[in-house]
Amino acid sequence: MIPFTSFDDFMDTARSFHGAATPGMMLAAFMTELALHSMGRTKHFHALCETDRDLPDAVQLLTPCTAGNGRLHVLDLGRFALTLFRTPGGKGVRVYLDLAKTAGWPHIRRWALQEPMADERSLVRLEREIRKAGIAVLSTASVQVRDAFLRETPPAPMIACISCGEPHPAHMGALCPACAGHSPYEPKLPAVIAPGSEFI
C-alpha cells in the first residue's frame, strides 16, 4: 500500500503503475476510499473486484491487498464494483457505481455504459465530472462473502513435469498444464539446417 498525500498524488502514481490516469482509476480511488472508510479500523481484510478493468490496480495502490499476497480476488462479472471483507468471517462492504445516481452526470453515465467519447474535450469533461461527483455516484451494501473466498489454500505438493522438467502441482498429473496442451505459447519449430551447412 502506498501512502498518498492527495488525489493528484494518487493519479500521478497511477500513471506510472497502471500506464495511464484513466477515468476508471479515478472512480476506483473514490470507491476504494469509501470501502476503507466503511470497513472501520481493521487490517484483516481481503478485496474482491468484480471487473479486471482499472479497479484491481487502484486496490493494489490504496490497500494492502495485492495479487501477489493472495488478498486481492478478481472475479470478472463485468460490473464496476469492489468489496472489502473481513477475514475471518467474510462480512464486508460492497461499493459500486450506481447507474441510477449518474442521471445528473452525463459523461460518467456514458462511460459506465461504455458509449464512445466524441472527442478529447469529452474526456476532459468526464474527468471533471468524476472529481466533482466523487462518491455521489456510488452506493454501498453490506455483504456476506461465500466460504469459497475465505478458505486459505495450503501449498500444493509439487512434482517435476515428465516433459519439460519444470515443477508443477502434483494434482495436475505427470504433465504440467502447458505440456498437456494448455500453453499460451506457440510450439517451437524444429531448426531447419540448410544443405551443405552442417558442421563436421
Rank of each mutant, 00 (worst) to 15 (best):
A21G: 11
F80V: 09
P154R: 05
S122F: 03
L189M: 09
R41Y: 04
A174Q: 13
M31Y: 01
P88C: 05
A35H: 00
S122K: 03
F85R: 04
P116L: 02
G68S: 13
H182C: 07
T87V: 15
T153A: 10
A81G: 11
A28P: 05
A148K: 14
P190F: 03
S139L: 03
H46G: 10
H46I: 04
E152Y: 01
R94Q: 13
W111L: 11
W111R: 08
L138E: 01
V137A: 06
E198W: 03
A178E: 10
P177V: 00
V93A: 01
P195G: 03
I2A: 09
R79I: 14
L113R: 15
A194R: 13
G40S: 05
R109I: 03
G89L: 05
V145C: 07
V145G: 07
M172Q: 13
F30L: 04
T51K: 04
Q144S: 13
G134R: 06
S142K: 14
A21S: 15
A100D: 13
H37Q: 14
E152T: 14
S142G: 09
N69K: 04
A21V: 03
V124K: 12
P3Q: 11
P190S: 00
L55C: 07
G165F: 03
P56G: 05
L36C: 02
A133E: 00
E50K: 11
H73A: 10
F45H: 07
T51G: 02
C179L: 06
T51N: 04
A29W: 07
A47D: 05
R71K: 11
K43A: 12
A112R: 13
Q114S: 13
R121W: 03
F30M: 06
I159Y: 03
G70K: 00
T42E: 05
A160S: 14
L34E: 02
S122P: 01
S163K: 12
H168G: 05
G68Q: 09
I200F: 10
H18F: 07
L175T: 06
V59F: 01
A47K: 01
E33P: 04
P155E: 09
H171F: 13
P106T: 07
V95C: 04
E129D: 07
Q144E: 12
A100Q: 12
T5S: 10
D9S: 15
L175G: 02
V93C: 08
T42Q: 06
A178W: 14
T87S: 09
P3A: 11
A170K: 12
E127L: 08
A191Y: 04
R94N: 09
M39K: 03
Q114N: 11
S163Y: 01
S163I: 07
I135V: 15
R79L: 08
F149R: 08
A29D: 08
V59A: 09
K91M: 11
L84P: 06
F4S: 10
L123D: 06
M11F: 01
